[in-house]
Amino acid sequence: MSVYLLRRLIQAVGVVAAMSIIVFIGVFAIGDPVEILISPDADQIERERAIRALGLDLPLWQQYLVFLGKALQGDLGRSFVFNEPALQLILQRMPATLELAIAATVAAILIGLPLGLYAGLRPNSLGAKTIMAGSILGFSLPTFWVGLMLIMVFAVQLGWLPSTGRGETVEVLGLRWSFLTLDGLAHLVMPAINLALFKISLVIRLTRAGVRETMLMDYVKFARAKGLTPFRVTFVHVFKNILIPVVTVTGLEFGSTIAFSVVTESIFAWPGMGKLIIDSINVLDRPVIVAYLMIIVLMFITINLVVDLTYSVLDPRVRLEGK
């Protein structure tokens, strides 16, 4: 087990290194941060000063070595735009995004799992068909469009919910959280739903597909034949079996929720990492992009590790490599 974990750790380092090289080359190819950031009034002298100030006067490979040297000492560089340590900037914004992603994932499971279960157990009922048709809506319309519609209806027309931004926050463990206040929750509802829509559909569909298959499995038939209650059959035998794809996908989706909260955050002016990264990409703020991706890569690696470990717990047929 520990050998397995160690090997995963070494691989993680390789992935992070590969990622940073791709970002350096990619950002270099996309454009020139100085051209983007500099005032149109600036003259040639000022331009050259700015290029030196941001360390962009060196050849790209030297810039990378400088970055590597500092990164090994725990310094991921300072944002070109904010002149603050990139890591600190991201960590400041992280609670907002985590809060949003967790809320969306919880909503997806709480709504998606029961609906999917129902649709799988009674596949031919009218309810099931409505659920399945409705779930298509969840992923066929672009997020930005649905987001604006939510704002139009619930904030502008009905006035039930605040339109944008993060509500009142409470400081817990040195970080600001908004889900502990009523105002904060009110601000959280719409962006969370917006972000959850796709996931709800996904969970419904995966659960339904899993349930339909599992119900026909021999061991379920056997359990039923043995005279176990339908409740026990459903929630012990069937449920355990369908959790594998649901766990995989929800795990994956949690990562991508964080990574792709970009659009939702910019529509709802939610001050999280997603908004930071899209702003940073727009001005090619390389230190922030690298630091952000580093965090996301590590997060994905961790999630995948957890998912793999969960597999082996949930399903003894899966054995981990490197035992």
Binding site: P33, A42, I45, R49, A50, A53, L54, N83
Partner: peptide
């Protein structure tokens, strides 16, 4: 330090 677009031109 590190200014991406400074006001130095006005002092020059």
């Amino acid at each position: 330090p590190n200014s991406p677009s400074s006001y130095a031109a006005y002092a020059r």
